[in-house]
Design a protein around this nucleic acid. Structure first.
Lengths: 251, 251
DNA sequence: TCGAATTTGTGCGTATGTATC
DNA sequence: GGATACATACGCACAAATTCG
């Protein structure tokens, strides 16, 4: 057998001492220099051990401040199923209602944004065609839990009351109802979840560690004619949300 | 603005030279020492630049052999929807048939395995109760693309023809049909996808880089009485598979 | 078959940058 | 602004895997 590396041994020691409540969640650990001297290891060993525990979500590091025991934040359950589209209001509101939390969101829309190549491909339109782009930040009890960027071809809703997703009479009612307003029946969505890491901006917006694991969902809504009418990139941080796909079937 | 770190600059240079086909997919790059001297940077810079490109999936490294341009492997599309359960045969076979690939799998079942705490909780049974555990390796055209470990309470199927998932008359027919054999109507499944990294063993089995991104899906089937009858951990490597949840809804 | 040379992978200490107090 | 703390980048040494004579 291989002998374990010093920094791995020390990571195990730290993990154990945290489990034993030597430091409680939210509490600051001694500085690296202190820990190093106290435990008879070098500064570098401590750093690498802490890096590992940070990646595991056990610790969080704040530059200039210290290293803290991560507070076990309750994860918000997000259910994704066809039922979501049948209820009124947004699916996010329904999820939060089920958890007894207050659902709010902030959004910013830009009309007339030329579609980049990948978005154009997903929407089945020529690259550069104008789109309405909306970025969202979803909050549960005022704490951010999810991000999303939505793209709709401008040509579909131009001139109607629902051009802007978060303005007008159907604000916040979801793609299905808004598209019904312009005579389009949306019958299907495809969701493509892919794992990834939070970049600096995402980490900042969501209040999580940079590099933390996230699921990026590419969601596209299709009309009954099979035409893509909206596509979105949804960022779901693992530390804050639990995704559940509900798959129900008859006999 | 910040000036970019040397290893990031060199990573960009390497990326560009690869895009320019200086080395074609599958081809070996010069060794670190050669590249370092040739480009006037240190050995460490080259290594870190290559590490970054390996994480991005642009390169793959093989110890003792060299660093190679990653071959753009076609990703297998795995569709997850209620329809999967209505067709005969396994859902994996249906997915591969849609792609014109041959679906095969290897499995190994152990009866009478005591349920660990997390599995017991998911199945709603006491910890330590016996389960039938089956591990799978799924192959598309003989190349592994997915792993899975399935758990069923032994008490449900004990004494029947379908105790072992991959033996008997309904081998390979899926949970829904097998459970029907013992009088249980399975009507619902919940899937919980979570991002993660491949460990050494998974990377080995799947032929991917250690630490590569994967989606781990916790899937649980429920009977019409709401009882959990099977739960599985499915490992889906991002490099090899594309997951699509098909969400269809009426008006 | 075996061993030496080569190549990548891992671990570690130091120097420097940057945020916080 | 100074002191302190974590974050990033870097070079070196050694281990592990492979290759080849």
């Amino acid at each position: 057998m291989h002998e374990q590396a010093p920094y791995l041994r020390f990571a195990d020691e730290l993990r154990k001492r945290i489990e034993d409540q030597e430091w409680t969640p939210g509490e600051r650990l001694p500085s690296r220099a202190q820990l190093a001297e106290e435990c008879g290891v070098t500064d570098g060993i401590v750093r690498r051990a802490q890096e590992k525990l940070i990646a595991e979500g056990v610790l969080t590091g704040r530059a200039g401040s210290g290293t803290y025991v991560a507070e076990p934040r309750e994860r918000v359950r997000v259910v994704r199923s066809p039922e979501r589209e049948r209820t009124s209001g947004s699916a996010f509101e329904a999820d939060m209602a089920a958890l007894g939390k207050r659902a709010t969101w902030e959004s910013r829309s830009d009309a007339m944004v030329p579609a980049p190549a990948d978005i154009a491909a997903r929407l089945g339109i020529p690259e550069g065609d104008y789109c309405v782009r909306t970025t969202y930040e979803y909050l549960a009890n005022d704490k951010p839990v999810q991000l999303s960027t939505s793209w709709e071809p401008y040509s579909i809703t131009a001139g109607s009351l629902v051009v802007m997703p978060e303005a007008g009479p159907l604000a916040g009612e979801g793609v299905v109802r808004r598209m019904a307003e312009v005579g389009i029946k949306v019958t299907r969505a495809a969701e493509r979840p892919e794992p990834g890491h939070a970049d600096a901006e995402e980490a900042n917006l969501l209040g999580i560690q940079k590099g933390a694991l996230v699921t990026r969902i590419q969601r596209t809504y299709y009309s009954d004619g099979g035409r893509a009418v909206e596509t979105a990139d949804i960022v779901v941080p693992t530390a804050l949300c639990e995704i559940v796909y509900d798959v129900s079937f008859g006999s």
